[in-house]
């Protein structure tokens, strides 16, 4: 999965295994198809042991990349009630694309991906979904910075590492963000998820997982406490009585201000948004229009983006450790 500066096609060819976004809770998780089943990708063995390529680029030394990656891993491990750990093993001369059984992070120059800041690839046990190897490259075509306060005109390595390590740990993309078209690509106006597929402008820091990211990580690596202390919203999005595929659902808590989102990915328009703190939520459905659909959902799925954004007319209460009543959001064509 890739992190782009401007809109670009996901570099699927980089993936060592077929990796899809699965129609699970909230945010998207990565999964692989085994027979007719989707299996969630995750590290089954912890800590996640990783190497850093011993190569400097202007603005970021290998040691600074190690430190930034360490902080990014720690940020994910700091999500409440998840069981995650990582261990820096050492520097390596290997590139982060080698398929050598080691998890490697490092800089590589990819002129063929001139809009891609970074990308994560996987080798997966397709029976268990266990991640055998995952590598992250950061494209040294771009200007990078490891400065604690960021630097104008340079991408912050910790921000981008946080996003790519999110992928490495199994998260797909989130669509909690707004963009505008700029030329042939998109520019982010705002985002409330580290896992939004398009990066903030160079020089802007984005180093803290948000509620949507936390819900996703909790879904994959959450402890029993996470599952018993959070709940979910389940329902359908329909248009003229039939299910809407690819609707983006946002659950907003007026009490906390937190946004957690998900998609309807089944033909009947059903969705589940998980990892929510108990309480009352405002639910909103919108078409998938802030990025390339393929950034979020496997390309074989045909999405319906022909409807107006709409709110569900009732507050939805999320119980602790359970699921809300099933709700139906009826949308109308644009």
């Amino acid at each position: 999965m890739t992190r782009r500066r401007l809109g670009a096609v996901v570099a699927g060819a980089l993936l060592a295994a077929a990796v899809f976004s699965t129609d699970t809770l909230a945010y998207l998780k990565l999964g692989t198809r085994q027979g007719g089943q989707l299996i969630t990708l995750k590290f089954n063995t912890l800590p996640v042991r990783y190497f850093v390529t011993n190569r400097d680029v202007p603005g970021v030394t290998a040691s600074q990349l190690r430190d930034a990656a360490g902080r990014a891993f720690a940020s994910w491990a700091g999500v409440p009630n998840v069981r995650l750990s990582s261990e820096f093993v050492g520097f390596t001369g290997a590139n982060p694309l080698s398929g050598d059984g080691a998890n490697v992070l490092g800089f590589v120059t990819r002129t063929d991906l001139d809009r891609v800041l970074g990308s994560t690839s996987f080798t997966v046990d397709t029976v268990t979904g266990g991640i055998v190897e995952s590598d992250i490259f950061f494209n040294s075509l771009f200007s990078w910075s490891a400065a604690s306060a960021g630097e104008p005109g340079r991408q912050d390595i910790e921000s981008i590492a946080l996003h790519e390590i999110g992928h490495m740990l199994g998260l797909g993309h989130s669509m909690v963000g707004e963009t505008e078209l700029v030329g042939t690509g998109r520019r982010v106006l705002g985002a409330e998820a580290i896992m939004f597929p398009i990066a903030f402008s160079a020089g802007v820091l984005n180093r803290v997982p948000r509620a949507d990211d936390m819900a996703g990580m909790g879904d994959i690596y959450g402890t029993e406490t996470f599952r018993s202390s959070t709940g979910s919203i389940a329902g359908r999005v329909t248009k003229n009585g039939t299910g809407v595929v690819g609707a983006h659902l946002v659950a907003f808590s007026p009490a906390t201000g937190k946004l957690v989102a998900g998609f309807s990915l089944s033909q009947d328009g059903s969705f589940v948004i998980g990892g929510l703190e108990p309480g009352a939520f405002v639910l909103r459905a919108e078409p998938l229009d802030d990025g390339d659909a393929s950034s979020f959902i496997e390309s074989s799925v045909t999405i319906d983006a022909d409807f107006k954004p709409a709110f569900y007319e009732r507050l939805v209460t999320v119980p602790r450790g359970g699921t809300s009543r099933s709700v139906e959001i009826k949308v109308i064509p644009k």
Binding site: G150, P152, V176, G177, E178, R187, V188, L189, G190, A191, E192, F200, S201, G203, V204, L205, N206, R210, V250, F252, P254, A255, G257, L259, V282, R284
Partner: peptide, 26 residues
């Protein structure tokens, strides 16, 4: 009963005002 906006972090290096996805007043 309170009002709060659904906001997203702005794409700004100067910490500009968050982007408001929608407002709520209760």
């Amino acid at each position: 009963a309170g009002s709060r906006d659904a906001t997203e972090s702005a794409n700004s290096s100067t910490g500009g005002a968050p982007l408001t996805l929608f407002t709520t007043s209760s």
